[in-house]
Amino acid sequence: MSRKLSTGSSSSFYVQLYQIVDDRFSNQIISWSKTNNNSFIVWDMKRIRTNILLKSSSGVLLGRNLTEFVSKLRSNGFKTVVKGPGELEFSHDDFARGPLMMKKMMVKALSERIERFDAQIKTMKCRIKAKKASLGVENLFQNLRI
């Protein structure tokens, strides 16, 4: 692989995908688009599964077959670009050649994860508050029975 980018788990999908697309040794299978800096093309549907998805840890993050791979791309904001038969092109405004764009995408993914985590914390705080109130009411009833 050409460049290694360190990351947290929230953007591992993007990093793994970036490293595969940016790897010049996989250009016959998957590579950056020559006409659009924000997209990549899957040139060989069979070999992406056998040579990339099944032979590395990327299969866990990116999918074990082409259907899972495409599904994960779509769920991470990638759009399919209409091409000729036998080619799949995917684009994403923040996924582009060059480390600066990748950093932007990683920051965005991390921010989204932080927002979800904050929402979970708020939910937990509300549950704790409700539980305390419930326990307070139970204590009042127990004191009244005395």
Rank of each mutant, 00 (worst) to 15 (best):
G63T: 00
V107E: 02
D44V: 01
A109Q: 01
G59W: 07
S57R: 10
T35C: 05
S39I: 09
V42A: 11
N51T: 05
T35W: 04
S26E: 03
I30L: 04
S33Y: 09
M105A: 06
F78P: 15
I52P: 01
N27R: 13
M105R: 10
V42D: 10
R64I: 07
K72L: 12
R64C: 04
S91R: 15
G59N: 06
I30H: 01
P85M: 14
D44H: 09
P99M: 07
S56V: 07
R47C: 02
I30G: 00
R74M: 11
M101G: 14
S58D: 05
S75K: 15
Q28C: 06
V81N: 09
V60R: 08
R97L: 14
F95C: 00
V70L: 07
S91Q: 14
H92M: 04
K108C: 02
S56Y: 10
V82K: 11
N38F: 12
I52Y: 03
R97Y: 14
V70G: 03
F25N: 13
K79V: 02
M106F: 00
T50D: 12
V81P: 09
K34R: 13
I29W: 03
F25H: 10
N38K: 15
E87Y: 09
P99D: 12
K55C: 06
M106I: 10
I52G: 01
D23Q: 03
R47D: 04
R47A: 07
L54M: 10
E87I: 06
F69R: 02
S33A: 14
M101Q: 09
T67D: 09
G98K: 05
V107H: 02
L62V: 02
N76H: 15
L61S: 03
N76Y: 08
F25R: 13
A96T: 09
L66E: 02
I52F: 04
I30D: 00
R24V: 02
G86N: 15
A96H: 10
K46A: 13
R97V: 14
K72C: 01
K103D: 05
P99V: 14
K72D: 02
W32H: 12
L54D: 03
S26D: 04
H92T: 04
K46R: 15
W32V: 13
K34T: 11
N37Q: 14
F25T: 13
G63H: 00
G84Y: 05
A109H: 01
K79A: 05
P99F: 08
V60P: 00
V107M: 04
I29H: 04
S58Y: 10
N37S: 15
N27H: 10
S56T: 15
H92Q: 07
Q28M: 12
K104P: 00
F69P: 01
L53Y: 07
W32L: 11
K55P: 00
V82T: 08
K79F: 08
K72N: 06
P85T: 14
A96F: 11
G77L: 08
V82E: 10
F78C: 15
G59V: 04
M45R: 14
D23P: 03
V42L: 10
D93C: 08
G59C: 06
L100R: 06
K103Q: 06
I48L: 07
F69T: 01
E68H: 00
K34H: 11
L66Y: 06
H92G: 06
K46L: 13
W32S: 13
S71V: 07
F78D: 14
S56G: 15
R24T: 01
I52C: 03
M105C: 03
M106A: 02
T67A: 07
L73G: 12
D94I: 01
